[in-house]
Amino acid sequence: MTTEAASTSIPQQSRRGEVPEAAVRLGLYRTMVLSRTYEEAILREYHADKGPGFDIGKGLVPGEMHLSAGQEPVAAGVCAHLTTDDAVTATHRPHHLAVAHGVDLRKMTAEIFGRETGLGRGRGGHMHLFDPATHFSCSGIIAEGYPPALGQAFAFQRRGTDRIAVAVTGEGAANQGAFHESLNLAARWSLPVVFVVEDNDWGISVPRDAATAIGSNADRAAAYGIPGERVENDVEAVYDAARRAVARARAGDGPSLIEVHTLRMWGHFEGDAQGYRTDLADVAERDPIPRYEEVLRKAGVLDDEKVAQAKADASRRVEDAVEFARSSAIPDPADATAYVFTEGALR
């Protein structure tokens, strides 16, 4: 099942920018490879010791696990325009965005492994990654990551900077109140926010068309008087749309909405048998990374050596992070009640 309806309000063609320069294209590719390599490693570690059978709470990496394979173009295309001074709020499926935004892989992996060295000292888990160094955060609640992004943007604006906040949700979030409250408030106050919707066609098991009354959530931007654009799962199309949205936000002209019609290659969470999926037959063909690799090979940006190099670099970084996590200390149960409050106060 796919949804081909593009935004009716904004013609795609007229907005298409130049092909990015080779270094940018190589960077987009390498980011996607790193992200996929990361997810494959987490997938491996997650399933390594769930048996016999499948016990979700068992193993080195316990709990729900939502992996982002197929959605890399969103992260790579948007985050290429950001620095770590910009904020990103992600969803329950956050790894690709964290990787692309430059969150420390060791600390992130240690958090996913529930270790004391993790971003949240093992208190958060994979849906609750908070990295003040890169202003990265997540919410496991659908659409509820949007409102805090408004506040980060507000703080950046009030301090007279050109820093921005990127708020990411899935397409199911567009039917939540928090989504609409946030778009209205950000638009009315011209907050420097880029709203991103990852439409992966599925709200767990419910097809987007069964849940959403219109074909493109980008059209909803018109209700708030802001630009809205829907692009397919092509990293350069995302990059191009994000370039406009980020520039608008940095210039103080307010928020934009980008919906990416992306692809959830794997289950909603690990252990999801996906019996409901009617669109799995051609998933491999729709995998955005080999597709982009092909484009870049034809353009002379990639060759065998560069592909091998990208994969080797990614693998080295990811395995280093996994090893760091695996060898890190498990939090002391005696500290289970720590960190509810901070001791601090202004004096």
Partner: peptide, 19 residues
């Protein structure tokens, strides 16, 4: 606006950034 979710969230994000 009468949007408690949005403006409480705005407060949270601003606080996270040091306001």
């Amino acid at each position: 606006p009468i949007s408690e979710t949005a403006f409480i969230g705005l407060g949270i994000g601003a606080a996270v950034e040091g306001m």
